[in-house]
Amino acid sequence: MSSPASAPAGETARGGPIGRLYAWTMSLAARPRAEIWLAVVAFVESSVFLIPADVLFVPMAMARPLRAYRLALIATVFSTLGGIAGYALGYYVFEAVARPVLAFYGKLAAFESLRACAGPDTTLILLATSGLAHLPPIKVVTILAGAVQIGLGFFVVSCVLARGLRFFALAFLLRRYGPAIRHFIERRLKVMAVLAAGAAILLYFGLKLVAGSGQLLSC
C-alpha cells in the first residue's frame, strides 16, 4: 500500500513536481464532488496516472467513515475499469501509446524485464502484488497483461479480488478505528499486504509442486 500521507509530505517537502501532484491529488478529497474525483483517479491510476488512488481514498474515508465501504466500492470498480483500459493499451496500441507512457514515467526498462518473464504464473504474481501493494506499479502490470495477451476474464477477476481486498481492508480499518489507525496504515499496512500476497503466492506454487506441474516461471 502506498503511504497515503507520509509519502506526499516527503515529496512536498522537496518541492518537486511529484510533491505538487501529490498535494493536488490530496486536495481533491475536500471538494464537493470528491467521489467523482476518486473514481477518476482510481481509473487513470491503472493506466497513465502516477499517484495511487489511496492518497485520495484515505482522507475521504477518514472524513466520512460511514461512507467508507461506498468509497471502497467506487475505487474498486473504477480501478478495475482503468485496469481494463490499461490492458487495452498493451493489447492493441503498445508501440504507439503504451511504450511512450511507460518511457515518460521511467518504467519502460522495468516493464521489459517483467515481460521477459511474463508467463501465466509470473503474471498471476504481479497481478496479486500490484493490486494489493502497488508492487510493481499497477499501470505497469495492466499494460503488461495486455501486451502478453493473458485472458481478459482472468485479468478482470484478479483486479476485482486484489484491488477490492485492498480498498475494503482500508475501509474496514478506517471505519472501525478512525484517525487512530492512520499511522498504522501509513507505516505498516503495505508490509502486511506484501506478506499476504507472498503467502498466497507460496500457497499457489506449493499446490503446483504437489500436483507435479512443470516449470513455475517462464524465465
Rank of each mutant, 00 (worst) to 15 (best):
F172N: 04
G86N: 00
L152R: 02
G10I: 06
R99H: 11
L174Q: 09
A169P: 08
L56Q: 07
V48D: 02
T12D: 11
G16Q: 03
H134M: 14
A9T: 13
V141D: 06
G10N: 12
R99C: 05
F172V: 08
T142Q: 05
K139H: 15
L126A: 07
G16W: 01
A75S: 09
A75V: 02
A53M: 01
I125V: 14
R176N: 12
A34G: 09
A5Q: 12
L195Y: 12
I74M: 02
A98F: 10
E45R: 05
A72P: 15
L50P: 15
V41N: 07
A72L: 01
A53P: 05
G214S: 12
F111E: 03
A30W: 07
W24S: 06
F57Q: 02
A145S: 15
R70M: 10
L202D: 08
R64E: 14
G151K: 07
H134R: 15
P4W: 00
L124N: 13
G82Y: 06
A88Y: 09
L174H: 08
L38N: 06
F184R: 03
L127W: 05
M26I: 10
L144W: 01
W37G: 01
K208C: 07
P4M: 05
E112R: 12
I181G: 02
L165V: 13
G15A: 06
P136L: 07
I185D: 02
E35H: 15
A196G: 10
T76F: 04
S113G: 13
E186I: 02
V194A: 12
R175E: 12
M26S: 14
G82T: 04
F155S: 07
P17C: 09
G15C: 04
I84G: 09
S3D: 07
L152T: 00
L203T: 12
A116F: 10
R14Y: 11
A211V: 05
A128C: 13
S79I: 06
V210K: 08
A63E: 01
G206M: 04
L102Q: 03
L56H: 04
R188Y: 09
A39Y: 08
L73T: 09
L28W: 00
S113P: 08
A110I: 11
V191T: 13
V160S: 07
A199R: 14
F94M: 04
L56K: 02
L135M: 14
V93M: 03
V194G: 10
F94V: 04
L207N: 08
R188V: 11
F57T: 00
S6H: 14
E11S: 13
P32H: 09
A63D: 08
V191E: 10
L202P: 01
R31I: 09
P179N: 00
I84N: 06
P137W: 10
Y22V: 00
A96G: 15
